[in-house]
Write a protein that binds this DNA or RNA. Structure first.
Lengths: 212, 212
DNA sequence: GTCTATAACTCGATAGAC
DNA sequence: GTCTATCGAGTTATAGAC
């Protein structure tokens, strides 16, 4: 009787079908070990099933990987079109972008390194298989900065450098997380707090540099 | 006769012994594919020899990898003690650091992603095997910033954030190189020029933000 | 859908001739 | 020192029972 009730409670949760459990497990393993380092056995173990069932749902490793990678890409290139195209000031846009982007990555600290690493390992495959118009957001933002410079609202800066400065300061600390933690002798909690601070520190730093 | 002369010219170059060719090949392959993704066959092919000879010089993959990784670490954590400890102004130190660090990475654009990725995959192994006092430079620099703040030479900034901002802006563009090139539609030459600009742009950006 | 067993294959590593 | 041939561990993927 207890078993039935437990089954009911557990199985009705959306992500407790085998399929969903596999995807969750695959995400965890792939993000940690990458395509080459992850083994199907690891994923099966993590999902609490066996390899055969894994292949039943996803014919091979590549298909499963591509699924996870595509999902990771969507998170890595967020839809910030709303923010960029709204008519709030450039400073506010920078503030919102840094805050929201760091916040998203905090949910998934491994994500940036995972994506950038896999792209690096095989840029051609990436370009052919996954790249489509990811540069739109970038162009809009750069355009925006250019306009503000011409209006004389901010100092004359090179938009491309400003843009990558912003991205760098938001993302890099996650990529360097383990080394940074060793270097500064901090634990998970303290790192989390450090990144919490950066949600405002980064935009303050940028605005201080470009304001007139 | 010609053959003898050619052999003489070629073999006398330090890096044309099999050993040196292997190390060069291993560096190229490991930096691109990482420990898990690289195969001994790839390295042998790249060096123009066969697997057996590879194992003759380096008993196993791990030994070869560690050799390359240690060399990469030395480049990634440069000895900037001289710069930091000299008695030039903080602004000049920042200028020199950014210029020299970007310059070093330009020689080896794959290096940062390689190091950070391998550390991430197995932080414990890294800490036990390779980590020794890499944090000294960091502490010196932070100390320095703190002093300048107290002297009232620069705005009151958090040294840790300032430090990682600087590192981020120097290193990240190399890590994101393939994606950045696709996004902005530039080729190798143009990327090189972009990074050339950054040798001065980054420090200017920082100083603009912290100067009083 | 889920399992056990195993085929098929990749890759690091070694044996042994030259 | 350098090569060919091959072994053996580890992994992906499939066959087939339930």
């Amino acid at each position: 009787m207890l078993t039935i009730w437990l089954n009911y409670m557990v199985n009705n949760k959306k992500d407790d079908t085998s399929q969903e459990r596999i995807l969750l497990a695959a995400k965890k393993i792939f993000l940690q070990k990458g395509m080459a380092g992850a083994r199907m056995q690891d994923i099966a173990d993590e999902a609490g099933i066996n390899k055969a069932l894994l292949h039943y749902y996803f014919r091979n490793k590549e298909i499963l990987f591509d699924m996870i990678f595509l999902e990771a890409l969507k998170q890595f290139f967020p839809k910030i079109t709303d923010v960029v195209q709204s008519d709030i000031s450039l400073f506010e846009k920078i503030e919102i972008f840094c805050r929201e982007y760091i916040d998203m990555m905090q949910q998934n600290a491994y994500l940036p390194l995972f994506v950038l690493n896999e792209v690096n390992k095989d840029p051609v495959r990436f370009k052919e298989k996954f790249w489509q118009n990811k540069n739109v957001v970038f162009l809009k933002f750069v355009e925006q900065i250019d306009t503000e410079v011409k209006r004389g609202k901010i100092k004359s800066v090179n938009p491309a450098h400003l843009f990558i400065n912003m991205i760098s300061m938001c993302i890099f600390p996650f990529i360097a997380k383990p080394i940074w933690m060793m270097t500064t002798n901090v634990d998970e909690m303290q790192f989390r707090y450090f990144m919490e601070q950066r949600k405002t520190e980064v935009s303050k730093f940028i605005i201080e540099s470009i304001k007139k």
